[in-house]
């Protein structure tokens, strides 16, 4: 197995499973996906199928990653040479080619988040989980910390993405609270942690104040 530096497996030992087969749930999803593409263009389904494979790994093992055998299964399903799937899976950082913890903490440290205090969020995560570097998993196997580039939610910076959900307007205290909840097995509601609606200004609207955007009660 070749180490994949981009996804952070360099120098780490883990065991690649020897077998992977799509389960019924995945198979029904795959059928839905492949129906979208004309015959002969199944290669277009590479990304969705990899995502389905990663989802199945989360269901089955609690760790959302794509082992090599799963890439082979995707390649086989799409009638493609395996290397073409390896290329895609290693290109996109959203696909984990090494195991991750149950909660994959993806911390944005790009400029807007950084200006709004992402360093505090990172420090809080490190303090709570005991993880020292990036791409590392905590000793209890619950958390993996990954540094990511802009997640595209700068208005509510800083952002902490946990698995597929955004937790916005983070600071050290809220981060600690969130992680504690996750550790207890609760999943707090994603979105803004200060209660603002979508990306409305902090403290409520400052323009168009005479209009009521709230749904009629």
């Amino acid at each position: 197995m070749v180490d994949n530096i981009a996804n952070g497996s360099a120098g780490k030992d883990f065991v690649q499973p020897t077998h992977f087969a799509f389960d019924d749930e995945s198979n029904s999803e795959i059928e839905k996906v492949l129906a979208k593409y004309p015959p002969g263009k199944q290669a277009s389904g590479s990304l969705p199928l990899l995502f389905i494979a990663q989802g199945q790994m989360r269901r089955q093992t609690g760790s959302a990653w794509i082992p090599r055998v799963a890439m082979d299964a995707v390649a086989h399903r799409l009638g493609m040479p395996p290397i073409r799937i390896y290329e895609v899976a290693t290109f996109y950082l959203m696909f984990n080619t090494t195991p991750v913890g149950r909660y994959h903490l993806q911390l944005c440290t790009t400029t807007p988040c950084w200006l709004r205090g992402s360093d505090d969020v990172v420090a809080a995560c490190r303090k709570f989980t005991g993880i020292e570097g990036w791409h590392e998993t905590s000793a209890d196997g619950l958390f993996t910390m990954t540094e990511v580039e802009c997640l595209g939610a700068c208005v509510n910076a800083p952002i902490l993405q946990v698995n597929d959900d955004f937790y916005e307007d983070m600071d050290a205290a809220r981060t600690e609270e969130l992680l504690a909840a996750l550790k207890r097995g609760e999943v707090p509601k994603p979105g803004s942690m200060i209660g603002r609606m979508t990306s409305a200004p902090e403290g409520g609207p400052t323009t168009l104040t005479t209009l009521n955007f709230l749904p009629a009660e």
Binding site: V2, I5, A6, N7, R68, P82, Y86, E87, T90
Partner: peptide, 13 residues
Amino acid sequence: TARGESMEIGTYV
């Protein structure tokens, strides 16, 4: 495989 600075030519396996 991989991308950017980490891109490598190879067989992966």
